[in-house]
Amino acid sequence: MSGAPAGFAEFVSARYPALVRYGALLTGDRGHGEDLAQDALVKTYRAWRRLHPRGDPEAYTRQVMVRAAWRAGRRLWRFELPAAVLPDRPAGGDFAESQSTTEVVLAALRALPAGQRVVLVLRYWAGLSEQEIAAQLGCSTGTVKSRASRAITALRRADGPLADAFTPAGRRHAAAQPSE
């Protein structure tokens, strides 16, 4: 594409879908996730001379995304969607059958404060250690631990949308059976 420096178009074309998915997790919304990814890629574009060919543009882009999402916990952020309460728990039956997993999980993520959501995604999806997350976010490991713990607690809440996901399969099926 005209105007794009060498290698940039190829990088975006190849990694864009993965970055949008990452953005969706960090924001809890597919549209805002795509916005987040595009905004980060603008910054990657501006830093491209320093990132290509010897740098790691994807790591840089993800870092920009994480920091933008993390900052949402500290100030009003245009990607942040207000959600005072967790969305309704899907009505009975198997979790996977009741509603699109994408919708339920993204809604549950969206209901978390931004800081908790970012830590949750980094810890349990990206698989980073608490120390690595603290280093990336510039906070203490104590902050990481507490945010992760609160996020998990919120997701496991008995009346939360993901409660069934934390329930052992046997109990889940038993609970779904009508009583005699």
Binding site: A24, T101, T102, V105
Partner: peptide
């Protein structure tokens, strides 16, 4: 949790 998150965005395609 990881499985759920994976599953949630695994099929997600960009709109642009």
């Amino acid at each position: 949790i990881r499985d759920l998150l994976d599953e949630a965005v695994g099929e997600l395609e960009p709109s642009d």
